[in-house]
Amino acid sequence: MTTLVTGGTGFVGSAVVRALIARGERPRCLVRPGSDRRNLEGLGIELAEGDLTHGESLAEALKGCTALFHVAADYRIWVRDPESMHRANVEGTRQLMQQALKEGVARIVYTSSVAVLGKAPGGAPAHEETPVTLEDMIGVYKRSKFLAEREVQRLEREEGLPVVTVNPSTPIGPRDVKPTPTGRMVVEAAAGRMPAFVDTGLNVVHVDDVAQGHMQAYDRGAVGQRYVLGGENLDLAEILAVVAARRGRKAPKIRLPRRPLMPLAHVAETWARLTKGPEPLLTVDGLKMAARPMYFSHDKAAKALDYRPRPAAEAIHDAVDWFESEGYLR
């Protein structure tokens, strides 16, 4: 079986590649020219250069493939050019899925996100069927993933796309080379550079458990269905306490109110835009998201896929240890 993985150089994608290799497969990875390929070094896999927005490269990458894991996405809370994120996450997903149909790919696992799910009443964990609309999406990333998943669902209904969707929560663990927004938070906290925080809640899951969930979705998932791949629901204070304890530090205790920080977030975004600097740590959308703890239930995946994630503390420990070993905490 020939399997194409998109996003294999990234955090979740590289874990999926390793999970496939553990099953005895040698997947093909779609990689952008000039991309950071550290996560694929030494794996001995086939690389196909291309881009989600270039249809010809997708056709070449998919030739002879019977399976597709579409993991790639532009994941940033703040982006200088929102249209570039829409092109990658929405239009790129549409092009890839349409090309997979043309090539006769027999089975597809699409990596969506819990970001597209609704908010359950009373603070209860949300799930796959929690009602939600596009208007509920905060920020360009969430909107792009919501629209991309809707496009995947449309192609499944109207054109018979053989796709199973997975919705990972907040993956944490090794090989977060970029790092992701969550990884940046872990780095800052582990390095002792986060004396205060804006409290919220997250569902934390080990990235390797998310990858295993992809394998289980491929083996057991029902076409047209989606499955939350989550872990433990923790408030941010709990997460930071585990990070600090791993490094022998005291956890930050100062909880900052969101509203007074909004002007600072606007200034940080303006400065990043003018200087063409990196994504600011403090963003308007990030503060808005913090008002809604992101708690989720993976009961459906547990029952249908036999999905069993490890404790969240193990994910956090593995992330801190990897960031330390790779020099991120200096």
Rank of each mutant, 00 (worst) to 15 (best):
S113Q: 04
W78G: 03
V116H: 06
A265I: 03
S297W: 12
Y307I: 01
K253W: 08
T165S: 04
Q216P: 02
L264V: 06
A148G: 12
V177H: 13
E41Q: 14
A120E: 14
A244G: 11
E188R: 12
G44I: 02
L117E: 04
P179W: 12
I316F: 11
G50Y: 01
P293F: 15
A190W: 12
H127K: 07
A72N: 05
T93R: 03
A115M: 09
E49A: 03
K303R: 15
G286Y: 09
V12F: 04
L62C: 08
D285W: 07
V16G: 04
R23G: 03
A245G: 15
L117P: 02
T182R: 13
P311I: 14
G224M: 05
K178F: 10
G139H: 09
N203H: 08
V132F: 06
H317C: 09
V223N: 02
T66W: 05
A15Q: 01
G10H: 08
P131L: 11
A265E: 01
S169R: 03
A19C: 08
G50T: 03
V267L: 13
S57K: 10
L40V: 01
R246V: 13
R249Q: 15
L58A: 00
H298C: 10
R292I: 15
L256F: 11
V79W: 11
A302Q: 15
L47T: 09
A73L: 02
T180W: 13
V223R: 11
W78I: 04
R258P: 05
E324Y: 06
T283M: 05
R87I: 04
F197L: 06
R18L: 05
T182P: 14
G13S: 05
G104Q: 03
E25S: 01
V242S: 03
A244K: 12
R157W: 09
E269H: 11
R94Q: 11
R249K: 12
E83R: 11
D235L: 09
A148H: 12
H54F: 10
P260Y: 07
K300V: 01
P181Q: 09
S112Y: 10
R76C: 07
S112D: 11
V320S: 14
C29Q: 01
P278G: 12
L134S: 07
R23E: 14
A126H: 14
G221Q: 00
M1R: 03
H266K: 14
E326Y: 08
A268W: 01
I254V: 15
F323D: 07
K145S: 06
E314A: 07
T130M: 11
E159R: 14
L234Q: 05
G201C: 02
T165K: 00
L30W: 00
D74Y: 14
G7T: 04
K119W: 14
A237L: 08
V116P: 08
E326A: 10
L261E: 12
V320G: 13
L240Q: 10
R308A: 10
G277N: 15
V132R: 09
R259W: 10
L329T: 06
L161D: 01
G104M: 01
D321S: 11
L155G: 12
W322I: 04
H214W: 00
E188T: 06
R184F: 11
D74P: 02
M289C: 14
A19N: 04
R193F: 06
S14F: 08
H70D: 03
G10K: 07
P82H: 05
A302Y: 01
V140Y: 05
